[in-house]
Write a protein that binds this DNA or RNA. Sequence first.
DNA 1: CGAAGCTCTAAGCCGCCTCTCAGAAAAGTC
DNA 2: GACTTTTCTGAGAGGCGGCTTAGAGCTTCG
Lengths: 225, 225
Amino acid sequence: MRPGTRVLLVEDDRSIAGFVEPELERLGFRVRCAYDGHCGLEEAVRFGPDLVLLDIMLPGLDGVGVLKGLRRQGLKVPVVMLTARDATLDKVHSLDHGADDYVTKPFEMDELLARMRALLRRVEGEEVLRVADLEVNTATREVRRGWREIELTAREYDLLEYMARNPRRVLSRGLLLSRVWGQEGGVTTNVVEVYVAYLRKKVDAPGERPLIRTVRGAGYALRGT
Amino acid sequence: MRPGTRVLLVEDDRSIAGFVEPELERLGFRVRCAYDGHCGLEEAVRFGPDLVLLDIMLPGLDGVGVLKGLRRQGLKVPVVMLTARDATLDKVHSLDHGADDYVTKPFEMDELLARMRALLRRVEGEEVLRVADLEVNTATREVRRGWREIELTAREYDLLEYMARNPRRVLSRGLLLSRVWGQEGGVTTNVVEVYVAYLRKKVDAPGERPLIRTVRGAGYALRGT
DNA sequence: CGAAGCTCTAAGCCGCCTCTCAGAAAAGTC
DNA sequence: GACTTTTCTGAGAGGCGGCTTAGAGCTTCG
């Protein structure tokens, strides 16, 4: 599990959140908390987590509602539901709506971690990302467009992989800077623009339909059509 | 049985662990111990052993629980259960959940070793790894490229075998350090680079198409094309 | 006990990559 | 068309990742 993995914890019970959050941070995760369903949904969009821990019982919008909301917005992020013991109906409901796993309260930290790892491995594992005729192999870091092999530097690859993991979404410079470069403090830099230009030179060869789109005033998007 | 084979021992009875662990290490295994079920499961994920020795009676999560956890996460590592005499029900249970063998306490070290060998042989087989015209015979530890015999030192061989088991995949220095050298903590060392250089000198002779690729900013990969 | 071979550390060097900056170009607004 | 805002691009400096080499402990073996 690579460090800096982003986890969103949606949980109103502070006794649980107050225990799980620092524990996860100690293990190197980047954690954000939300204490009700609406905030949770909002944070999921803004924070862009790699994994969501989602309580079922929440004030306002409940866990299943948040889950539905996530899926409706096309977020495929893996979700672990936190359910009360024997809330069988809830589990069924959740899995129906695309939860990936659940743990029943009270739970051991180890058990939660084990399930998180399993999901993250599934997501991170051998994966080929495809956007139109572009292929990004995350295991070998090979990139092809059609039959053309594309050689990328480390930064170029990291940027393209992130964009390919979020196809069609408009990604702001700030977001890319934080996700690919890892910098939070927004210094005045146009390094993102420079690297998008590098990518274009290699990915969108002359004559090919361009995949990397500029959305003026908003950011960039990777999409085929 | 190749040296450096990774064995995870999950056993709370220190009188057994304290005997088995040093014995296995003396024989060239790389051993890690866990003293309860949850730690065992966690270590299995983190350590990535080639074989697990798993006590049934454990504090917290019991052996069958650990076994289930392993299989649920898709780990196919062979497991030898350590059971009390005549705990027939446990055995049945274990084999149901995908244990590969068991020994009953008290056991002779020789018996345990015999069963371990059988399992490891089944898994490792008489395997010849091939990458392009490179052949790595894991049974005899002989390496050839084309018609040329290649003499490697122990470390060089371990490194090459690990790379040949993960062809085309980009392997980071940290991963290689942990899997081949067994070091976890990120100490400042360039030993991986040095050994890659040694391998290159022997494997990629001048004039031959180089198989060992550097992926700048990421690691190394072994591939033919 | 000496020699040879293996493993690992450390230091220096080289070249590519990364990033900054300034100005050009494009897009939007009046 | 003039002006503002946003995006693109070319050039260059510096840093850092990666390679090489020498040599110091260790182990092994005669």
